[in-house]
Design a protein around this nucleic acid. Sequence first.
DNA 1: GTGCGTGCAAAGACTTTGCACGTAC
DNA 2: GTACGTGCAAAGTCTTTGCACGCAC
Lengths: 168, 168
Amino acid sequence: MHSASNNTSQGSEAIEILAPLCSVFRRFLKDRNLRYTQERAEVLDAVMATEGLFEAEGLLLQLRERTNHNVSKATVYRTLRLLQEAGIITLTLIDPNQTHYQLVYGRTPADTMICMETGHHIDLRDTAIAQLRDRIAKEHGWSIKGHRFVIYGISPEAADNTRPKPSA
Amino acid sequence: MHSASNNTSQGSEAIEILAPLCSVFRRFLKDRNLRYTQERAEVLDAVMATEGLFEAEGLLLQLRERTNHNVSKATVYRTLRLLQEAGIITLTLIDPNQTHYQLVYGRTPADTMICMETGHHIDLRDTAIAQLRDRIAKEHGWSIKGHRFVIYGISPEAADNTRPKPSA
DNA sequence: GTGCGTGCAAAGACTTTGCACGTAC
DNA sequence: GTACGTGCAAAGTCTTTGCACGCAC
């Protein structure tokens, strides 16, 4: 299995963007006198392998597949909090029942459009969103820490499936 | 105490906008062969008295103040779900720990700017947000069901308080 | 009069925490 | 060698659900 190991390999092309992320986390930990442990590396590894949104539970399952060494649920939650504080992932809050996260590693966090039928979601990379945010915050004299923009809708595919088949 | 009763008074000026909401809910219930009970009326009443965002717990506390008759937590949650299905309130999801709601009664749901220091939030009523949403959805061929736009920042007041006092 | 609605308490889901042992520094 | 980190399981929150009685229709 091709695994984007973040702490050993240094020449892989696949991880060209991801590699610095490991350094970012290590520096963050060092600054706070925290340790870069096997478990934290594995969680970061699993996070880097995700696409778009993910949940703690999914990450835990992925960790069990990826590694022999089982990282505990508690450690996953604890590490997710650290990654959040390090600015590597953000909360996304699209579902009241469960916290969703996403990797942001220096990029602007993706805004999201979610299909209410299928749960399928696509990342939006529209600069107009941040511009709008900046304009509004400026008008009110606020300084910006972040934003979340989620569009709820029905994707074309779901609309096709949902539409009752014309009988005959 | 001045209470915007939704099921008895009909001439109050204060509830000119709110009154129809009761009808909306009653019709919704009738359409589904559900009953318009005292408890549901009281929950709607309390929801109408809220400003901006609210949580189930706060609503429950308010209900205990407003009425002698205690509405149970279970009924509050059940009614909030109905109100949501009726399109009277929406989920807001600004806090991973608790579900937040807001009254929308026919209006566009307010977007929100939240101060990360104080928790204070202000409602945004900027039409550019919906326009942006529409443009993006159209580009992707999606039909829109709703959206959420939240700006996280530091309000001017909080910035002032946070700033260390110039010694002397 | 019927069947939906309610209150209570217990269950359920997700997340956090206390404690003893392990390990990165 | 030390103090932070981990795993486990128990606790904690918010929310939902089962059941017997009550009330809107």
